[in-house]
Design a protein around this nucleic acid. Structure first.
Lengths: 253, 253
DNA sequence: CACTATTTGTCCGTATGTATG
DNA sequence: TCATACATACGGACAAATAGT
């Protein structure tokens, strides 16, 4: 059996948790079908080279989550899931890589602020920011260049009280995330959606692509420590100049 | 200062590591500029409500990574970074959500295998799978339907010795990842790239969209425990039927 | 009915890592 | 640096439930 994943010893995650993740994954991907018997504590002990207490704890964590049922003298059984809602877990990642991407963009590219205005939030934006319709927000459209070729168009919608803490010039020099943090709002979550669209008469010339080209579209909602959205942004990229990379591993870093 | 992130106590990650992540992030996003002084151990103690030893350890982890320099009696200074390579960290996420997505697709959708053939790998595929040019691989094209509307086209390229362990019929009933695992290959990493393209004469009718529609394109390389690529797959989605969601948080789950 | 094997539950002692004051 | 507390992880021991011989 695979004990490779647990040989790495310099992980800050406790052993029982890593074994729990491995087992949970095997249940969710169908290696252990609902109703079937999971390996016993002693089998896990041998297979993964851990103590029985560690194996037991991993199994108990699964039982606490109602993924398995433990029966003394019989074994640990995979439960049948009633709803599939539980499975719709979106990718959960560390914000760190996003932050460093934002910073590296800031360092290596130049920015041109195309629009900078205060206006009333429409239906879509007010829903995204969870504010009343027609609240005043700050809308900024920026184009990023990398070595003189346009790289992205980003349209941000920020709460008025945050927008007033910086100027149009600040936005050309500093990453928006940094300005928001300076305004006293620490970002705890970012919800991100990746989709695509076509370049239109407005966006095509800004990115120097032809109308009808495919564009990668990112929508981001920044949520502060009070769980309030503070920024809704849409980014457009030409797929020839930007692709979104991710590494998915058994363990979180 | 923000001590919210550390109040959550049910994380399996040790406290010093979570503080380390927060500090690292603040350095990378520019809150603490290179050359400047980081908060002292006692300041961190007060700001985040941790003991001095915990703060010390978090700072030492940063020093071990060469991100900061510690000077006795003076303080902890943010180092200047020589290369920006370090910042280009791609999003690092747990494979679990991807696995469960694959499973839920398998449960709720129907699959039609459009092509199933063994052929010689071209330049691109052989590079992705790290095999010699003209090696034999198995290529399968599948269309997924969700309630009778086409949902995705996926084209997979699998090493010949894995492809021969299952049939075309298996591929209609079982997720490919499951079949690969049954062939004895445990997946440790998945490298994923998200980009976009246009529907052409071949793909448009399969997805029942018009030629020239924008399509979300996912490329995935599955890597087994021996660090060998075993599957290269491309997926196409209509953006009206599928968007890619991610949650980015300070802490990994 | 005992007897045995398997499996989980509970307990002990010990060592190390984490975290506080 | 020290003392203390708790969590993690190991090895071992024994009890209780289950199933088959």
């Amino acid at each position: 059996m695979n004990n490779y994943a647990l040989s790495n010893n310099d992980s800050p995650l406790p052993l029982y948790h890593r074994l729990y993740v491995i087992l949970k994954e095997s249940i969710l991907n169908g290696t252990y079908q609902p109703g079937t018997l999971l390996p016993s504590e002693t089998e896990l002990t041998q297979a993964y080279g851990v103590s029985r207490i560690t194996a037991k704890r991993a199994l108990n964590e699964l039982a606490d989550e109602d993924l398995v049922e433990r029966k003394r003298g019989k074994g640990t059984f995979v439960k049948k899931r009633k709803s599939t809602e539980l499975l719709h877990t979106p990718i959960q990642a560390n914000i760190q890589a996003l932050m460093s991407n934002l910073t590296v963009i800031d360092l290596e590219t130049s920015v041109e602020v195309k629009q900078f205005e205060y206006k009333k939030a429409g239906l879509w934006v007010s829903q995204q920011l969870q504010i009343p319709l027609n609240s005043t927000i700050q809308r900024a459209v920026r184009v990023r260049y990398y070595k003189d070729t346009p790289f992205s168009i980003s349209t941000s919608h920020v709460l008025k009280e945050i927008g007033t803490t910086y100027t149009e010039e600040d936005l050309e020099k500093t990453a928006l995330i940094h300005l928001i943090q300076k305004a006293g709002h620490n970002i705890l979550h970012v919800h991100q959606t990746i989709t695509c669209t076509l370049a239109n008469e407005e966006t095509a010339p800004l990115l120097k692509v032809s109308v009808g080209s495919p564009l990668l579209k990112l929508r981001r909602i920044f949520i502060n420590t009070n769980k309030k959205p503070v920024n809704y942004a849409e980014m457009l990229y030409s797929p020839e100049r930007f692709e979104y990379n991710m590494n998915l591993t058994l363990e979180s870093p």
